[in-house]
Design a protein around this nucleic acid. Structure first.
Lengths: 228, 228
DNA sequence: TTCTGATTCAAACGTATGTTTCAAACAACC
DNA sequence: GGTTGTTTGAAACATACGTTTGAATCAGAA
């Protein structure tokens, strides 16, 4: 039994990585750079310096490899989200509610933490995350669906308690808008500078997260339009 | 010379569509449903009931077909955005500024209008739009880059005038967050109901746009965190 | 050492893709 | 009506893919 991991996610942790880990690492980088569909097993195994057949031997198929990678990334993020929300709620005065900022921070920051601990560049990492949501034929691995259901349930009830004037279904939508803001924004940083002519500058990842949280707090707490 | 189009975007407008239009229509639907990479020219030409070679004859290559489709969708949206902003600014009292809601409405609503006029289902359409931003190997066609630059420039200056307390680069970022909120949200409506256990309901497209605009107004006008 | 199960390896298989070819069909003009 | 340029058609081309195969190699227990 190995020592407890201090990192949330790191397939290259071992000093002498196994074939399986070499595949995972190389595949993460390539998938992030070019997408699940476009990267061939030959490209992966060549980058990992392993035999072509080893992917099918260790994972069964390319699809199963993709599932394993998604699971490896998403699971620690969701675990960290729940832990942070647990911590916030356990320290909370029972007759008070959590500030929106704390809820959103607990929701968004684990993503940034995993990036910093990963061996992927920021851009690569977010592209990979974004693909988990946007890939053409994407179906989420069964194993992570209950995770996400739990996360959505916990955070939306926490937000509903803090923002009792908002209808519950709107809470879910706004949580969803928040995910979109984070993922889409971070996926296309370079595109933004293309369109803005460099006006957007290049804020650090922490500055960017602050800007995103500010924006999402405003969106979350926004008054409900009286239309409809 | 044909009559002026009343629709912003409609490749199937002709009563007896040409081979080129048949290809465009079928390709739009298939790309939206399954992604640029996954849809083969054989699938497209079969759906369009044209010969396989006609894609390369009329468009030159599959990539050129993709570019043409993106251009067909994006151009009328950006034109409508600029026209709406022009109208708002021409009616504006010179010593007043535009409400954030009006700016965001002019920015976001053209997307929804194009959906309604398109022959694609809402979901299909947004998937196609989302792919324009998220596809693995995606490179924007050169022809639409200046369009987007113009849109970003116009809308960010309008927003900067209305929100003079915000630093200009933050304006650009918040405009970008807004795009992300719209695209990502509308791309994954069904995923949301998977995770929320149906709590999100199924609002109409107009209700959804209202919710998005509410959220984005809040985000746009949110106070700037004093961190950093 | 010898045997056994797990892993690696080079090669091949079957299939699907984008593209090209070139003859046939068509349309428009003198 | 015949000619010319454009468009369609069926077939083939070259390539790339995920997967499978079966022998070779390795590691560890008997």
């Amino acid at each position: 039994m190995p020592l407890a991991d201090t990192k949330l996610h790191d397939p290259a942790a071992a000093a002498d990585p196994t074939t399986k880990d070499r595949i995972l690492l190389a595949a993460e980088e390539l998938f992030a750079a070019e997408g699940f569909e476009k990267v061939s097993l030959r490209a992966i195994t060549q980058a990992a310096d392993v035999n072509l057949a080893s992917v099918n031997y260790h994972f069964g198929s390319k699809d199963a490899l993709i599932d394993a990678i998604i699971e490896n990334i998403v699971t620690p993020i969701n675990r960290e989200r729940i832990e942070r929300l647990d911590a916030l709620e356990s320290e909370l005065d029972p007759d008070k509610t959590l500030p929106t900022r704390d809820i959103l921070d607990a929701f968004l920051r684990p993503l940034v933490i995993v990036i910093k601990e990963s061996d992927l560049s920021e851009q690569m990492f977010f592209r990979l995350m974004g693909r988990c949501m946007a890939e053409p034929d994407y179906r989420m691995p069964e194993s992570v669906v209950p995770q996400f259901q739990n996360v959505v349930q916990r955070f939306s009830t926490a937000a509903a308690r803090s923002l009792p004037t908002l209808p519950p279904d709107l809470i879910v939508w706004r949580l969803y808008f928040t995910i979109g803001t984070l993922l889409q924004s971070l996926m296309h940083i370079e595109a933004l500078n293309t369109f803005s002519g460099g006006k957007a500058g290049e804020p650090s990842l922490d500055d960017l997260l602050t800007r995103i949280i500010d924006y999402c707090i405003g969106g979350f707490e926004a008054p409900v339009s009286n239309s409809k």
